[in-house]
């Protein structure tokens, strides 16, 4: 029970961090079809911006300004780069963002150096909120949970209750029709890309001090975000939300469940010894591959359900 409760909390927090990263990408990918490899780079930039800003004006202003800076950068990238590349097809867009990711990584290295920077949790949030069976639950984790819930609420309200949100939603499923109705689709694209980048920036501000702010953080965070977005299904914010939580919980619980395929086979009376073929694979316990499960799930769901969990469009 103890382990279960703590794991549940851990899984929720991790899932919500994933959601913060993935929500921006799901907007961009669903709407513009761009496999944005620079998304994790925006996450990294958010963390670095927040680090520099918090040294001068403190953490709280940085929490607002750093994502805005990322958003502005995103808007500029869309208006002067992506829009031009758009007519050359999706692979061109993908490579454009790939090139961008390489450049951002190098620029970050040249600006802030190769080593991690001391971006710390603000003193006001650096205390254990409560203890559960002797394990502290840091206040900053609760703060992360709060921000991501607010974010989910804001995106959901923005998409369903505002005019531009409705246009975006319509463009998710019927981009051509929206254009035909006289909406400025390129401007909508710019807004979506800027908003997506800003969300990634916000995730960076929140996640950068929770994890470690260093030049490799984009590289290590990249693939898992794609997994969440595609698993959740394109065009569905709810799908993305569920997928994020699911991935968070699965990885958390995989750690505590110490079983291997060999244990399963034992239930059927088959004993795995070192002479059994593939015994190396069969004796792998679940915690050892916990962090790989998202990739396995991604392959499985796409093979049987190419739209992902709740996708409204073919991926």
């Amino acid at each position: 029970m103890e382990v279960f409760l703590v794991s549940l909390l851990n899984g929720l927090v991790y899932g919500m961090l994933l959601f913060m990263l993935a929500s921006g990408l799901t907007l961009i990918l669903s709407m513009m079809g761009v496999l944005n490899f620079a998304h994790a780079s925006a996450y990294m930039l958010g963390a670095y911006f927040a680090f520099t800003l918090s040294q001068h004006i403190g953490f709280w202003p940085a929490l607002v300004i750093a994502p805005l800076l990322c958003g502005l950068l995103g808007a500029a990238i869309e208006m002067y780069g992506l829009r031009r590349v758009h007519r050359n097809g999706h692979i061109a867009e993908l490579l454009f963002t790939f090139g961008l990711a390489l450049i951002i990584e190098k620029v970050v290295q040249m600006t802030w150096g190769l080593l991690p920077v001391p971006y710390r949790v603000p003193a006001g949030l650096d205390f254990p909120l409560f203890s559960i069976y002797g394990t502290h639950f840091p206040a900053y984790r609760a703060f992360m949970l709060l921000i991501s819930l607010l974010m989910f609420g804001a995106i959901w309200l923005g998409l369903t209750r505002t005019r531009i949100g409705l246009v975006i939603q319509a463009a998710l499923t019927h981009p051509d029709m929206v254009g035909a109705l006289g909406h400025n689709v390129p401007r909508v694209f710019t807004i979506v890309f800027a908003a997506g980048t800003a969300l990634a920036g916000l995730a960076g501000v929140i996640g950068g001090n929770y994890q470690v702010t260093e030049p490799a953080m984009a590289f290590t965070m990249g693939p898992i975000v794609f997994v969440v977005v595609v698993f959740g299904g394109l065009g569905s914010l709810t799908g993305c939300f569920i997928a994020s939580l699911l991935m968070g919980l699965i990885q958390t619980f995989a750690v505590v469940l110490d079983y291997s395929p060999a244990d399963l086979l034992k239930q059927f009376g088959v004993t795995v010894t070192s002479a059994t073929p593939f015994h190396e694979v069969l004796t792998v316990p679940l915690p050892r591959i916990g962090a790989l499960l998202p990739f396995l799930l991604l392959v499985l769901i796409l093979v049987f359900k190419p739209r992902g969990l709740m996708g409204t469009r073919d991926t």
Binding site: N10, T135, F253, V255
Partner: peptide, 10 residues
């Protein structure tokens, strides 16, 4: 692994 909290719990 991006979140070590579950390992710490264990």
């Amino acid at each position: 692994v991006k979140d070590f909290a579950p390992y710490v719990t264990k």
